[in-house]
Design a protein around this nucleic acid. Structure first.
Lengths: 354, 354
DNA sequence: GTGAAAGCGCTAACAC
DNA sequence: GTGTTAGCGCTTTCAC
């Protein structure tokens, strides 16, 4: 029963009013006599009329749409974020357009597409950009917020967490447990999160005079992390501890250690992850990890975006949230009471630029 | 460096051509002299002009946008689907608007919003609709495809899999393993998937003269499934087998059995799931489950949507794909060689209506 | 091949 | 309050 699009004009005709009266009747705060609105609404109902938001967007010059661009949803950390952000925007009366970063370097294409769409803001989930791209993007005057990736450019807002301190804690903690063959399972090479976690980790080890025993790349994904773990442990004296740049890889590592190498976690190997995804707390892995405050990250990012959209605060900001060690059972028990370890390992940093 | 929107008019002025020449230069198949297009493109580059797709949509009356409405992304089954569908649409030159079904019954609001958006098609991921809603929705003449939920109305396309046969297989298989206290962990009450899996399961048991030993509701989510498992096994003679309406709940059950009840899976209890999410194959759970062909489901659904959008096939279809038992290690070893079990448990059904 | 002109369906002044 | 009018930025005839 395909009906051709019925317009406000048709409704006006049926209701015996002007077209603008119809328009007014469909906007909440408009001066229309209650009687007229009733008449209009009834005519609209009869015809099955719905205001065309595209036309509305064109004239009001506001699409009430946010673009979210993601890299992948394999990691629950991001699907959780997407859902939370999405619900937030929806509740604020915004639409959400979802984009995936193409694997080939089609970043520019996606950005072009987004700009043409007239979205009012863009939220990037773990999308790596170089400063040239960032500058280009910022130049359009549309608010951008990048979550979980540092961009070397002030003109774009960023919210992330204190990866360096988290890494530092991991290195320090593993060595404090008595481990001496401590390895690193890296995430996506050259991603800011990996760089920072790694740097902190190495410093944490160096400060107590320990070297990183081995290192392999797992690209933040389960399958690659399994392979990396195999390479790491195919050794006559394998590592006795492992810091993984995210939880998904830590879980892959634990699975591989237990089921392929017959090693016990934490008895033979201590494992630490990063993120605190829901699965980290499941008893099958009970993963010691560094919790990123997802909820807060999304909140900050969405609020930042909204503030910029509503011109409340035109400044871009770089927000760094603290991470919290979650001591569970993938790491060997500490000799001393690990009370102090349960606190946040860093303070919130907050900088306004411009 | 906020620039006010530059329009095709501005570009025309700078390039010394008419506004329509600019328009033509930005459409791939248009009769423009290569020389003119060069001039225009250069002027556009200088001004940072991007065609406004909202204006374009208004006049062409096509938004090139698909709406996807989801219920939750907690289950990787759906985040995987979302990503796959999203990439498909993106590659076809379509945008994707994401909506979440509100928990309160705001379904109508979301639908209204979607219709106003002038999207060209709607993909619903596991969204339950009654036939009244379905009829209302179909009445707008915009193509709808529902994935993984049966709707009691022919005017809407559906793609799902053979839940009944899957459930039947689970019941039959668990009893063939020698289990006699076989319980069911239900999904969302009244969801078509749960109803069908449950019905098939009960029939599979009944056909060999076994009753369902116990039943609890886990709402397709991890936390609720943990509670349900506790209720199920807080019993002096607990179940010795469990069929869970999806993998997420099966994993929750296994975790709870192992870590709270000290029961071994599969030695003390056999567990079967449904979906075959990536985690099901991880060695930590190695879950026997019924594989839904996600890839194929997405493909069918997206193709169906596209066909309807492009008027190639105006008929709605109900597609039922076969499920495949994946024998892993959460179920007791079969005495006889379980070769026959590895085949699809049903044929593909395919019906065109209208 | 190019420009002028006519809208797409709506909102927002502006008079009355 | 209500209708009239003038666009939003673009695509698309239609003459030339």
């Amino acid at each position: 029963m395909k009906r051709k699009s019925v317009t406000s004009r048709d409704v006006a005709k049926l209701a015996g009013v002007s077209q603008s009266a119809v328009s007014r009747s469909f906007s909440a705060d408009a001066k229309v006599a209650e009687k007229t609105r009733k008449k209009v609404l009834e005519a609209a109902r009869q015809l099955g009329y719905r205001p065309n938001s595209i036309a509305r967007s064109l004239i009001t010059r506001s699409s009430r749409t946010i673009a979210v661009v993601a890299y992948s949803l394999e990691n629950p950390f991001y699907s959780v974020m997407l859902e939370k952000a999405s619900r937030y925007f929806q509740q604020q009366g915004y639409h959400l357009q979802l984009f995936f970063a193409p694997s080939d370097n089609g970043f520019a294409t996606v950005i072009d597409d987004i700009i043409r769409s007239q979205v009012e803001g863009v939220l990037m989930l773990a999308i790596t950009m170089d400063s040239a791209q960032a500058e280009e993007v910022a130049d359009f005057g549309i608010p951008f917020v990048v979550i979980n990736r540092t961009v070397n450019f002030d003109g774009i807002s960023q919210v992330g967490s204190d990866n360096y301190s988290g890494g530092y804690w991991a290195g320090h903690y593993l060595s404090s447990l008595g481990h001496r063959r401590i390895a690193y399972l890296a995430g996506l090479p050259d991603s800011s999160t990996d760089l920072q976690r790694q740097a902190g980790f190495l410093k944490g080890l160096a400060d107590v005079g320990v070297d990183c025993y081995a290192m392999e790349v797992g690209n933040y994904c389960y399958a690659d992390a399994c392979h990396a773990t195999r390479r790491l442990f195919a050794n006559s004296t394998p590592p006795d501890a492992l810091f993984c740049a995210n939880d998904l890889m830590a879980i892959a590592a634990i699975d591989t250690l237990r089921h392929e190498f017959g090693l016990a976690v934490p008895d033979d190997v201590s494992v630490i992850g990063f993120d605190d995804i829901p699965m980290a707390d499941w008893p099958s892995h009970s993963l010691t990890t560094l919790k990123q405050p997802v909820e807060l990250m999304v909140l900050k990012a969405t609020e930042l975006l909204m503030a910029q959209i509503n011109q409340i605060d035109i400044n871009t900001e770089h927000i760094m949230l603290p991470v919290t060690p979650m001591l569970r059972n993938s790491t060997r028990r500490s000799a001393r009471h690990p009370k102090e370890n349960l606190e946040e390992v860093s303070d919130t940093h907050h900088s306004s630029v411009r």
